[in-house]
Design a protein around this nucleic acid. Structure first.
Lengths: 113, 113
DNA sequence: ATTACGCTTAACCATTGGGTTATATATTAG
DNA sequence: CTAATATATAACCCAATGGTTAAGCGTAAT
């Protein structure tokens, strides 16, 4: 009954870090290289290199070697699964939530805004 | 330029763990108590207790003490921010991705799928 | 009053994660 | 050929994470 889904682990795990989210934001403007991606973050280049590896393992980015530079682009397919997971449950969560909210309203208890 | 958003860190971080996602799935069927939530997972009850604390800090659940039991329900508001973050960038990522895909198609290179 | 129950907290351990600097590898430039 | 550039890997450090067992605390049952 314990549903394992390592892909979700990796995608959500990747998104949990601000530097990595920053990189994904940069990539929304288009393909880029490691050095360019690294510039605005004030961590060392090796650190960025490892963030990229995490993103790559999560399937969030693709890398194409062109000479000595690596051209990085985003791959949105793997994020879809995460998006779907949230969307699926959000439906039930919201229903749940609204029901409680209604109950509190009717019974005049501390209605939350 | 490095955009900090600790709330997103916490929400995505919380979702990155299978046990915690499991708990959220259970809660989609309705409010529950700590013991009931713990049952299907084969980790100790204190472990669940800490997972709940993580979820609570991320704003994903609410807790109401009723005598000696804690009644837990999901709070979907904080997940919305995460959902919005993904949705916002997914728009650009997808455009990005489709452009590359088109390019590859036109130039007859290894078209993916 | 005593015991049982539901849950949290504390103390501990092993693993992972994110950072660093130093070194390695491959490619381009001179 | 040599030097510079782009990036990755190695070795290390420290803090955070996820698990455990043992103890604590408030509430309910007897």
């Amino acid at each position: 009954m314990v549903k394992r889904n390592e892909q979700l682990d990796r995608v959500f795990g990747a998104l949990a870090d601000p530097t990595r989210r920053g990189i994904l934001e940069q990539l929304s403007h288009g393909e880029s290289t490691v050095g360019t991606l690294a510039a605005p973050h004030n961590v060392s280049q090796p650190a960025i290199s490892r963030h990229l590896r995490v993103l790559e393992r999560a399937g969030l980015i693709r890398r194409e070697r062109k000479g000595r530079e690596h051209h990085i682009r985003v791959d949105p397919s793997s994020v879809e699964e995460a998006q779907d997971w949230i969307a699926h449950y959000a439906r039930f969560w919201k229903r749940q939530f609204d029901a409680v909210d209604d109950y509190l309203t009717k019974h005049g208890k501390k209605r939350k805004k």
